[in-house]
């Protein structure tokens, strides 16, 4: 089962780097989803490893929360895009020193 966990870690890391390097807010969001999915994979793997369904329940809750988060996040992105005509996360950088 270790290979699943390693795959999960790799996907998580790729998601991380994506969040840090991509500038399109929607792609950044996709990378976050990728990280969440990687976590889900680990949870499901551990569920099988331990013969216990709690991991699957946790993954399910992650999906629910991710759905809610995507709804709000995309709405925010839309609002920003509507006023600033830009979906770049670097453009929303007025709140600084």
């Amino acid at each position: 089962m270790t290979e699943y966990i390693v795959l999960s870690a790799i996907l998580f890391t790729i998601g991380c780097v994506g969040v840090l390097t991509r500038r399109n807010a929607i792609v950044v969001f996709m990378c976050i989803e990728l990280m969440l999915n990687a976590c889900n994979l680990a949870l499901v793997t551990f569920a099988k490893q331990h013969g216990n369904l709690d991991g699957q329940i946790a993954a399910f809750f992650v999906m629910v929360v991710a759905a809610a988060e995507v709804v709000i996040g995309l709405a925010i992105i839309m609002t920003i895009f509507r006023t600033r005509r830009s979906a770049s996360v670097d453009d929303a950088s007025l709140l600084k020193y």
């Binding site: 840090l20 996360v89 950088s93 020193y97």
Partner: peptide, 13 residues
């Protein structure tokens, strides 16, 4: 305060 440059990606880093 220069660290707080307003770039979310910087904070994420």
């Amino acid at each position: 305060r220069r660290v707080q440059n307003g770039f979310v990606r910087s904070y994420a880093l």
